[in-house]
Deep mutational scan, measured.
Amino acid sequence: NITAAIYDEIQQEMKRAKVSQALFAKVAANKSQGWLCELLRWKENPSPENRTLWENLCTIRRFLNLPQHERDVIY
Rank of each mutant, 00 (worst) to 15 (best):
I2F: 01
T3A: 01
T3I: 01
A5I: 15
I6W: 01
I6P: 01
I6N: 01
Y7H: 04
Y7K: 08
D8F: 08
D8A: 14
E9R: 12
E9M: 13
E9Q: 14
E9Y: 05
I10G: 00
I10P: 00
Q11P: 09
Q11I: 11
Q12F: 04
Q12M: 06
E13G: 00
M14A: 07
M14L: 08
K15G: 13
K15Y: 10
R16A: 07
R16C: 03
A17F: 07
A17M: 11
A17C: 06
A17N: 10
A17Q: 09
A17G: 12
K18Y: 14
K18W: 10
V19T: 15
V19H: 03
V19P: 07
S20A: 07
S20M: 08
Q21M: 10
A22C: 03
A22V: 05
A22I: 14
A22D: 04
L23W: 04
F24G: 00
F24Y: 02
A25C: 01
A25P: 02
K26T: 14
V27W: 11
V27E: 14
V27M: 07
V27Q: 09
V27R: 13
V27T: 13
A28N: 03
A28K: 00
A29T: 03
N30D: 03
N30A: 04
N30C: 09
K31A: 12
K31Y: 02
S32V: 10
Q33P: 10
Q33A: 04
Q33S: 06
Q33T: 13
G34A: 08
G34W: 14
W35E: 09
L36F: 11
L36W: 01
C37T: 13
C37Y: 07
E38F: 12
E38P: 06
L39P: 01
L39F: 15
L39K: 11
L39N: 05
W42G: 14
W42V: 07
K43Q: 04
K43S: 05
E44V: 07
N45L: 12
N45P: 09
N45R: 09
P46A: 07
P46G: 07
P46E: 15
S47P: 10
S47M: 05
S47D: 14
P48Q: 04
E49V: 04
E49R: 12
N50S: 07
N50P: 03
R51M: 13
R51P: 11
T52F: 15
T52R: 11
T52N: 02
L53W: 05
W54T: 06
E55F: 15
E55P: 02
E55A: 07
N56Q: 09
L57K: 00
C58K: 10
C58I: 10
T59W: 07
T59C: 06
I60T: 08
I60E: 00
R62I: 06
R62T: 04
L64D: 00
N65C: 03
L66A: 07
L66E: 09
P67N: 15
Q68S: 13
Q68F: 12
E70I: 01
E70V: 00
E70P: 01
R71W: 00
R71L: 07
R71C: 11
D72K: 08
D72N: 03
D72L: 05
D72F: 04
V73Y: 08
V73L: 13
V73S: 14
V73N: 03
V73R: 13
I74Q: 04
I74K: 02
Y75N: 03
Y75A: 00
